[in-house]
């Protein structure tokens, strides 16, 4: 049971972080379908940091460096979306999809090149971080507390305050609802959208490093992040683009994802004798069902996905 709670919380943290990222981008008016790719690149940044960090570094410094690195990589990578979607008015779906494919391909190429350079026989795309991972985890009895659970909560509070309590957040949301009206009162729409996408890069990068640290202690970059970026978008839609509801939605989805890791530990579930693959499918099936019921009365920002055109005013 404790294991289920632990996995639920950690997967919910991933989903929460990434969904909040998507939330920022969409509130500014850009659909960020590239979250999956941003997660991969953020994870790559963090993993590289863990690999190259000096051995004797204190745990706190290591955590900070890894986080900064993941954030930096996510931020840089999301600017590829920003420049295409905002400045060049590219189709956001195409660019997002391209970023997903590019993220996995680039991470694989980079990691393989590093591995092969270190050892010519090593053609894997895996980075190991067995020891470094320990910095993120505190064992409380049999419960593994992960610092990312705290980070996710802090991120949630920051997102809520930024969006609803600051001038910046409210202006950004105006750009997602009616950019021409926002522009007419002197808000720089392009700048606001850039800010939205870059913040989503920060959150996506954090989510990515959190995801690869959640269960395992090595990561094969060929595998990407198994649709988690899109699950996060489903969480965001289920949460109706509101941070506090996104948090609840993330817990629900996290629970279903966690079940596939720990279902054998429950006598009842094990007795049902359902193949493990079905549990693997669960998060995706649940999200389809949830989307079917929640998409109709969508509270999506009105202008999302439409490039800002000054002459439409």
């Amino acid at each position: 049971m404790l294991l289920l709670v632990q996995y639920t919380l950690i997967f919910a943290s991933v989903l929460l972080l990434v969904a909040l990222g998507g939330c920022f981008a969409e509130h500014s008016g850009v659909i960020n379908l590239g979250l999956e790719g941003i997660m991969v690149i953020g994870a790559l940044g963090g993993a590289l940091m863990m690999r190259y960090a000096p051995a004797g570094i204190p745990a706190f410094a290591l955590i900070l460096l890894v986080l900064l690195c993941a954030i930096g990589f996510g931020l840089l990578y999301s600017s590829l979306l920003a420049v295409a979607a905002i400045n060049f008015k590219a189709d956001q779906t195409i660019v997002g999809t391209a970023l997903n494919m590019l993220g996995t391909a680039a991470a694989t190429v980079i990691v393989k090149a590093i591995n092969t350079a270190a050892n010519p026989d090593d053609v894997s795309s895996t980075i190991q971080y067995v020891n470094q991972k320990k910095a993120f985890i505190i064992n409380i009895g049999s419960f593994q507390f992960n610092w990312f659970m705290v980070i996710a909560v802090i991120a949630l509070i920051i997102a809520y305050v930024t969006l609803y309590k600051t001038k910046f957040g409210l202006r950004m949301m105006a750009c997602g609802e009616h950019p021409q009206a926002a522009a007419s009162v002197g808000i720089n729409v392009l700048k606001m959208r850039w800010a939205g996408v870059l913040i989503s890069g920060v959150y996506g990068g954090l989510g990515g490093i959190c995801y690869i640290l959640a269960g395992v202690s090595e990561w094969k970059f060929e595998n990407g992040v198994a649709g988690f970026g899109f699950l996060a978008l489903a969480v965001m839609i289920f949460g109706q683009w509101k941070p506090q509801r996104i948090a609840l939605a993330a817990l629900l989805f996290g629970l279903f994802r966690a079940l596939s890791n720990v279902y054998t530990g429950f006598d009842l579930l094990a007795a049902l004798n359902i193949p493990g693959t079905v549990y693997n499918m669960m998060p995706y099936i649940v999200s389809l069902v949830v989307l079917a019921f929640t998409s109709k009365s969508s509270r999506a920002p009105k202008a999302e996905g439409i490039p800002y055109d000054k002459s439409m005013r």
């Binding site: 590829l80 295409a84 979607a85 060049f88 008015k89 590219a90 189709d91 195409i94 660019v95 999809t97 391209a98 970023l99 494919m101 590019l102 996995t104 391909a105 680039a106 694989t108 190429v109 393989k112 090149a113 092969t116 010519p120 053609v123 795309s125 060929e222």
Partner: peptide, 26 residues
């Protein structure tokens, strides 16, 4: 040459091409 690079190079190139296709309108 597998001693230097991996075959995913071509995935990288094709995903770059899709990304660039976003700029076709421009």
């Amino acid at each position: 040459d597998k001693t230097m690079y991996c075959s995913q190079i071509s995935d990288l190139i094709s995903s770059l091409i899709i990304y660039l296709c976003g700029f076709v309108l421009f």
